[in-house]
Amino acid sequence: MDWIGVSVGAILTLLVFSYLLGDTPLFRIAQAIFVGVAIGYAATIAINLVLWNRLFEPLTRDLGANWHLFVPLVLGVLLFAKLRADWAPLGNLSVAFLFGVGSALAIGGALRGALVPQLLATLVPLTSFDNVLVFVGTIGALLSFRFVQPSPNQRSTRALDGLARAWGAIGRWFVLAAFGAMFADIAVSRISILVSRMYYLLHDWLQIIQ
């Protein structure tokens, strides 16, 4: 039984590899199977683990203790009003709830988990080479996106503009290095996936390597 599943996986892997020869029907078959299975799997998970286990089953088991679950139930039902044009405004409440809560959590999380910690991480004492590198690279990367031209009449700002341009040119190299590192990491990740697929074919399916 396991061998059938492994064989199906191996055949689908070969179908996907047929894309090396072009957009062949074999690749399209594998693509359609992947999309269909993924959607069906997600729908099954949502029905079994969310709707039934966390909503309908508690309501049927103890309605008095779980009366608050009517709120998500009503909001969820109102979403179906979006299927009809004249009833669509009824679903605005659910959509507003979803977007409002999602936006609030995302913004709050970005402030707490990304912006403030990242800013604090750059405020380092310039006591080591790494910290100097962080300071120069961070400020330089910000200055590389500075496109403001100074006023020609102000001599004092002219010197600052020269400094900002020079620092921004250095920061541009930091940005390029970061982009190169990101691309290299993605390439390494994709090679890892290729190697794992070959290992699957040779080890799990053909079993010619140990």
Binding site: L105, G109, R112, G113, A178, D185, V188, S189, R190, S192
Partner: peptide, 29 residues
Amino acid sequence: EQVRPFKTLPVAGGVSAAVEPRASVYYDA
């Protein structure tokens, strides 16, 4: 963003190579 700010327990990551640049930022911070 959603879990780390609330807890002080240690958090370790084993990430994909494609996620390493982003994870390095959090690691350095």
